[in-house]
């Protein structure tokens, strides 16, 4: 399952990666904080939204990511 940057509001088309709470190989649950994105004066914490293992992260801290672009891939655990 790919976790993408959601819509954050009108006129906001991108956000910067501020902090990764997980790394590749970490087990996550639906409420695990994955990554903090920052735009203007707000940080936005994105949860895993599913249970599984982090297989990949697509952006490093400081990188700018467009809304809808992938942030991480999670291999679902049955």
């Amino acid at each position: 399952m790919k976790i993408v940057l959601p819509q954050l509001g009108e006129g906001i088309d991108r956000a910067e990666v501020a902090f990764w709470h997980v790394k590749v190989g970490d087990a996550v649950g639906p409420h695990t904080d994955l990554v903090e994105m920052v735009t203007d004066k707000a940080t936005f914490i994105i949860p895993a939204d599913c249970a599984g293992v982090v297989k990949n992260v697509y952006a490093r801290v400081g990188e700018s990511v467009l809304v809808g672009a992938p942030l991480a891939q999670i291999e679902l655990v049955e």
């Binding site: 819509q7 954050l8 509001g9 009108e10 006129g11 906001i12 735009t39 203007d40 707000a42």
Partner: peptide, 9 residues
């Protein structure tokens, strides 16, 4: 309210 960070700020 609104899912909009700019609106909230």
């Amino acid at each position: 309210y609104r899912r909009d960070l700019r609106w909230y700020l």
